Deep mutational scan, measured.
Amino acid sequence: VTLFVASYDYEARTEDDLSFHKGEKFQILNSSEGDWWEARSLTTGETGYIPSNYVAPV
């Protein structure tokens, strides 16, 4: 399981994006799509795309 933590807050801009807060942890589901990764929030359980430059490895 690949875990990352949010370095910043992010507000979703499309329905496919995932909003999150600094400190929130994610399981990365797919990182092969470039700068936007499909992730599941371990806080909310929601799945969506997050900007990879807003998160760091745990």
Rank of each mutant, 00 (worst) to 15 (best):
residue 1 V to T: 14
residue 1 V to C: 15
residue 1 V to G: 14
residue 1 V to W: 11
residue 1 V to L: 13
residue 1 V to P: 12
residue 1 V to A: 12
residue 2 T to R: 12
residue 2 T to W: 10
residue 2 T to H: 12
residue 2 T to K: 11
residue 2 T to C: 15
residue 3 L to F: 12
residue 3 L to C: 13
residue 3 L to W: 11
residue 3 L to Y: 13
residue 3 L to E: 10
residue 3 L to I: 15
residue 3 L to S: 06
residue 3 L to P: 05
residue 3 L to K: 05
residue 3 L to N: 06
residue 4 F to C: 09
residue 4 F to Q: 04
residue 4 F to H: 07
residue 4 F to E: 03
residue 4 F to G: 05
residue 5 V to G: 03
residue 5 V to S: 05
residue 5 V to I: 12
residue 5 V to C: 08
residue 6 A to M: 00
residue 6 A to S: 06
residue 6 A to Q: 01
residue 6 A to D: 03
residue 6 A to G: 04
residue 6 A to W: 01
residue 6 A to R: 00
residue 6 A to L: 00
residue 7 S to Q: 15
residue 7 S to P: 04
residue 7 S to E: 15
residue 7 S to T: 15
residue 7 S to V: 15
residue 7 S to W: 14
residue 7 S to F: 14
residue 8 Y to E: 11
residue 8 Y to T: 09
residue 8 Y to H: 10
residue 8 Y to G: 07
residue 8 Y to I: 09
residue 8 Y to W: 11
residue 8 Y to M: 13
residue 8 Y to S: 09
residue 9 D to Y: 04
residue 9 D to T: 05
residue 9 D to H: 05
residue 9 D to F: 04
residue 9 D to A: 07
residue 9 D to P: 07
residue 10 Y to W: 09
residue 10 Y to Q: 01
residue 10 Y to G: 01
residue 10 Y to V: 02
residue 10 Y to P: 01
residue 11 E to Q: 12
residue 11 E to T: 12
residue 11 E to P: 04
residue 11 E to Y: 09
residue 12 A to D: 02
residue 12 A to R: 07
residue 12 A to K: 08
residue 12 A to W: 03
residue 12 A to C: 06
residue 13 R to N: 09
residue 13 R to H: 09
residue 13 R to G: 09
residue 14 T to E: 08
residue 14 T to I: 07
residue 14 T to C: 15
residue 14 T to N: 14
residue 14 T to F: 15
residue 15 E to W: 09
residue 15 E to D: 12
residue 15 E to N: 12
residue 15 E to T: 12
residue 15 E to Y: 09
residue 15 E to V: 12
residue 15 E to S: 13
residue 16 D to S: 14
residue 16 D to Q: 14
residue 16 D to H: 15
residue 16 D to A: 14
residue 16 D to F: 15
residue 17 D to K: 15
residue 17 D to H: 15
residue 17 D to A: 15
residue 17 D to F: 15
residue 17 D to T: 15
residue 17 D to E: 15
residue 17 D to Q: 15
residue 17 D to V: 14
residue 17 D to L: 10
residue 18 L to M: 13
residue 18 L to R: 00
residue 18 L to D: 00
residue 18 L to F: 08
residue 18 L to H: 01
residue 19 S to L: 02
residue 19 S to Q: 04
residue 19 S to M: 02
residue 20 F to R: 00
residue 20 F to I: 06
residue 20 F to K: 00
residue 20 F to H: 00
residue 20 F to D: 01
residue 20 F to P: 00
residue 21 H to A: 11
residue 21 H to G: 08
residue 21 H to K: 15
residue 21 H to M: 11
residue 21 H to I: 12
residue 21 H to F: 12
residue 22 K to P: 03
residue 22 K to Q: 08
residue 22 K to E: 07
residue 22 K to N: 04
residue 22 K to W: 05
residue 22 K to G: 04
residue 22 K to M: 08
residue 22 K to I: 09
residue 22 K to F: 06
residue 22 K to R: 10
residue 22 K to S: 07
residue 22 K to C: 07
residue 23 G to T: 01
residue 23 G to Y: 05
residue 23 G to E: 03
residue 23 G to Q: 01
residue 23 G to S: 03
residue 24 E to D: 15
residue 24 E to G: 01
residue 24 E to K: 00
residue 24 E to W: 06
residue 24 E to S: 04
residue 24 E to T: 07
residue 24 E to C: 05
residue 24 E to Q: 06
residue 25 K to V: 15
residue 25 K to P: 05
residue 25 K to H: 12
residue 25 K to W: 14
residue 25 K to L: 15
residue 25 K to D: 02
residue 25 K to C: 12
residue 26 F to K: 01
residue 26 F to L: 08
residue 26 F to G: 01
residue 26 F to I: 05
residue 26 F to V: 03
residue 26 F to S: 00
residue 27 Q to A: 09
residue 27 Q to N: 06
residue 27 Q to Y: 13
residue 27 Q to E: 14
residue 27 Q to F: 13
residue 28 I to C: 04
residue 28 I to P: 02
residue 28 I to R: 03
residue 28 I to Q: 01
residue 28 I to V: 09
residue 28 I to D: 00
residue 28 I to N: 01
residue 28 I to S: 00
residue 28 I to K: 03
residue 29 L to N: 04
residue 29 L to Q: 05
residue 29 L to D: 04
residue 29 L to S: 05
residue 29 L to T: 06
residue 29 L to M: 08
residue 30 N to P: 04
residue 30 N to C: 10
residue 30 N to M: 07
residue 30 N to Q: 08
residue 30 N to Y: 06
residue 30 N to E: 07
residue 30 N to I: 07
residue 30 N to K: 08
residue 30 N to F: 06
residue 30 N to S: 10
residue 31 S to E: 08
residue 31 S to M: 15
residue 31 S to I: 11
residue 32 S to P: 10
residue 32 S to V: 10
residue 32 S to W: 09
residue 32 S to D: 11
residue 32 S to A: 11
residue 33 E to C: 15
residue 33 E to R: 14
residue 33 E to T: 12
residue 33 E to H: 13
residue 33 E to D: 15
residue 34 G to V: 11
residue 34 G to S: 12
residue 34 G to H: 11
residue 34 G to M: 10
residue 34 G to Q: 12
residue 34 G to N: 11
residue 34 G to C: 13
residue 35 D to A: 09
residue 35 D to K: 08
residue 35 D to H: 10
residue 35 D to F: 13
residue 35 D to W: 09
residue 35 D to R: 07
residue 36 W to V: 07
residue 36 W to G: 02
residue 36 W to D: 02
residue 36 W to P: 04
residue 36 W to F: 10
residue 36 W to I: 07
residue 36 W to H: 07
residue 36 W to L: 07
residue 36 W to K: 11
residue 36 W to N: 05
residue 36 W to Y: 11
residue 36 W to E: 04
residue 37 W to D: 01
residue 37 W to P: 00
residue 37 W to S: 02
residue 37 W to N: 00
residue 37 W to A: 02
residue 37 W to Q: 02
residue 38 E to M: 15
residue 38 E to Y: 15
residue 38 E to C: 15
residue 38 E to R: 11
residue 38 E to T: 10
residue 39 A to E: 00
residue 39 A to D: 01
residue 39 A to C: 04
residue 39 A to S: 02
residue 39 A to Y: 02
residue 39 A to T: 02
residue 39 A to M: 04
residue 39 A to R: 00
residue 39 A to N: 00
residue 39 A to G: 05
residue 40 R to G: 01
residue 40 R to P: 00
residue 40 R to I: 11
residue 41 S to K: 12
residue 41 S to W: 01
residue 41 S to C: 06
residue 41 S to P: 00
residue 42 L to P: 02
residue 42 L to Q: 06
residue 42 L to T: 06
residue 42 L to H: 04
residue 42 L to A: 05
residue 42 L to N: 03
residue 43 T to A: 10
residue 43 T to K: 12
residue 43 T to Y: 08
residue 43 T to G: 06
residue 43 T to F: 09
residue 43 T to R: 12
residue 43 T to V: 10
residue 44 T to K: 03
residue 44 T to F: 02
residue 44 T to A: 02
residue 44 T to P: 01
residue 44 T to L: 00
residue 44 T to W: 02
residue 44 T to C: 02
residue 44 T to D: 03
residue 44 T to R: 03
residue 45 G to D: 05
residue 45 G to E: 04
residue 45 G to T: 03
residue 45 G to Y: 06
residue 45 G to F: 07
residue 45 G to Q: 06
residue 46 E to T: 07
residue 46 E to I: 10
residue 46 E to K: 15
residue 46 E to Y: 09
residue 46 E to Q: 14
residue 46 E to V: 09
residue 47 T to L: 07
residue 47 T to M: 08
residue 47 T to V: 14
residue 47 T to C: 10
residue 47 T to E: 08
residue 47 T to D: 04
residue 48 G to P: 00
residue 48 G to F: 04
residue 48 G to R: 02
residue 48 G to A: 02
residue 48 G to S: 01
residue 48 G to D: 00
residue 48 G to M: 03
residue 49 Y to C: 14
residue 49 Y to F: 12
residue 49 Y to E: 02
residue 49 Y to G: 03
residue 49 Y to R: 14
residue 50 I to G: 01
residue 50 I to T: 01
residue 50 I to M: 02
residue 50 I to H: 00
residue 50 I to K: 00
residue 50 I to L: 06
residue 50 I to E: 00
residue 51 P to W: 07
residue 51 P to I: 03
residue 51 P to C: 11
residue 51 P to L: 07
residue 51 P to E: 03
residue 51 P to K: 06
residue 52 S to C: 13
residue 52 S to P: 08
residue 52 S to G: 07
residue 52 S to M: 09
residue 52 S to W: 07
residue 52 S to D: 03
residue 52 S to R: 12
residue 52 S to F: 07
residue 52 S to H: 08
residue 52 S to T: 07
residue 53 N to L: 09
residue 53 N to V: 08
residue 53 N to K: 13
residue 53 N to Y: 11
residue 53 N to W: 15
residue 53 N to M: 11
residue 54 Y to G: 07
residue 54 Y to M: 13
residue 54 Y to Q: 06
residue 54 Y to L: 14
residue 55 V to S: 02
residue 55 V to A: 05
residue 55 V to C: 04
residue 55 V to H: 03
residue 55 V to L: 13
residue 55 V to P: 03
residue 56 A to R: 14
residue 56 A to Q: 14
residue 56 A to K: 15
residue 56 A to P: 04
residue 56 A to Y: 14
residue 57 P to A: 09
residue 57 P to F: 06
residue 57 P to N: 05
residue 57 P to S: 07
residue 57 P to G: 05
residue 57 P to W: 05
residue 57 P to L: 08
residue 57 P to I: 08
residue 58 V to Y: 10
residue 58 V to L: 12
residue 58 V to I: 13
residue 58 V to A: 09
residue 58 V to H: 08
